[in-house]
Amino acid sequence: MGEEIGVGCARPTGGPVGKNLKEEKETKNENLLQEENMVMVGKPAPDFIAPAYHKGKFIEVKLSDYLGKWVLLCFYPGDFTFV
């Protein structure tokens, strides 16, 4: 969990991982895409990897590495956005 990553000038990005990835790239049908991606209570949380800053280090986070723990996943509009 939380491997440290190398840092370069290109901004490292993550993204979703898992079974729907291929179809997501191949299909152009927006409605179909939305339905596939719909999150719902009682259903699995879509897995992803994302670069992160954690206590002085740059690491890579994978949601599925946290299986066995309770996870709070929080999104927000941006750093320095006041509330």
Partner: peptide, 8 residues
């Protein structure tokens, strides 16, 4: 991104 919070 909006202020989404998910309990997993």
């Amino acid at each position: 991104e909006t202020r989404g919070r998910f309990i997993i």
